[in-house]
Amino acid sequence: MSVSAPITNISRGSLHDGRGIRTVVYFAGCQLRCAWCHNPETYTAARKILYAPIKCIKCGRCIEICPAQHKIVGDDMIFYRDGCTSCARCADVCPSEALSVCGTQMSLDEVLAEVEKDRRYYNISGGGVTLSGGECLLHSEFCRSLLSACTEMKIHTTIETALFVPREAIDRVLPYTNAFFADLKLADPIKHLAFVGQDNVKIIDNLRYLAEVAPKGSIVVRIPLIPTVNDDRAELESLAGIIASLADGVGEVELLRYNPLAESKYQIAGMKYHAFGDRAQRDDEMKRAVGIVRERLPERISVKFR
């Protein structure tokens, strides 16, 4: 059993990732490569150095300490990643946190200690912990231990997953998870392959399975609405069609706005960014999409947008 997992962030006091006031644990590592991903630093489970030029005060401490020497920050403030072994010495000495480590290994106890800090807020609001990522279910053993510990402490548990994981991973966490957010991006497998890097057969298969075994109404299917990719009527209708055919584990569909502000995250992770438009959808655009999805779904499933 693994007792540690790469965690990129633990964010407290979240009001939008499940019911009540929640602490969200972000895991590193994901096998999907959604072209619009706004957490690209969580792609790999391996430790990664992030560099935010805007915070850099050009003190040069990182250059002095780097074993790969002179490979780091030049006057033009570019982080040369060639030869970087993510040893993180530079991040250790960086005084301004321009350089930071993403995906630190954290032990179960460390994560639990952080989660426990807000118990008072969970109790009063019905909130709890949400595991997210990356893909948290790639660390299903760790998740299981964490979730079972939370369940023992009567902390409400939620998992946010893209479901591109082995079936066993789902089975492992199922008994200890109160609610699920499951991502569904595209109905067309070819388009899915093109934009997400994998086809959606396994995902839809897992979703179908989860909808059968999860408690009634415990799943929220989340559709990120990406301009020009999946916001046309045909695509939305097919997505709604898939959801309509699922068992009653699904209780809600949530449409998410496109996030046009992810560019800086790509920059600090040293990756290339592709924009699908320069703004988030307006309310009326979201409502139109909700309308399309709504038509195809049975009454028991509610449709919202955010």
Binding site: I21, R120, Y121, N123
Partner: peptide, 21 residues
């Protein structure tokens, strides 16, 4: 922007939890 109708419930919860704390 945090003071929306649905969030005020949670802000109330945060305040009450802090009161208890």
């Amino acid at each position: 922007k945090l003071f929306t109708d649905s969030n005020i419930d949670m802000l109330t919860d945060i305040l009450l939890a802090a009161v208890e704390n």
